[in-house]
Design a protein around this nucleic acid. Structure first.
Length: 113
DNA sequence: TGATTGACCAACT
DNA sequence: CAGTTGGCCAATC
């Protein structure tokens, strides 16, 4: 019925935009949800591109599998990412999220609804 | 146009 | 346990 051949970036943006407040997700989970397992790197690429785009992507809610803010340095300001996450009630120590599992949000949840 | 890289993950050695 | 490799798609050189 419609266009199911959109680029990865579009799908990534869609999912990341659906991440609820106070929740975080991972590159692998998003990529896996989109049907590509090894495309986790592409998710990161999409985030990098999101800077240049006018699209507002809560990239600060996307971290790696370990809950570590690997991409914080790619933000407008590295400290900004941590501040935003802490603002949402997430505790961060040494650039990694504490109780990451509790804050983890599975993209398939939104897609399944 | 081919080769390399890029905010990753998982499996294998 | 640590290092290497394969995988995926897109952008850059």
């Amino acid at each position: 019925m419609v266009n199911n051949k959109k680029s990865f970036f579009e799908k990534v943006y869609k999912v990341v935009n659906k991440i609820p407040y106070g929740k975080v997700s991972t590159y692998g989970a998003i990529a896996n949800c989109l049907g590509r397992k090894g495309s986790a790197r592409m998710v990161g690429w999409a985030m990098n591109a999101s800077h240049s785009m006018e699209s507002i992507i809560p990239a600060h809610r996307v971290v790696n599998r370990n809950g570590m803010l690997t991409g914080k340095h790619h933000f407008f300001s590295p400290e900004r990412m941590q501040s935003m996450l802490e603002q949402e009630g997430i505790t961060i120590k040494e650039d990694k999220i504490i109780n990451f599992k509790l804050h983890f949000w599975d993209p398939s949840i939104e897609l399944n609804q």
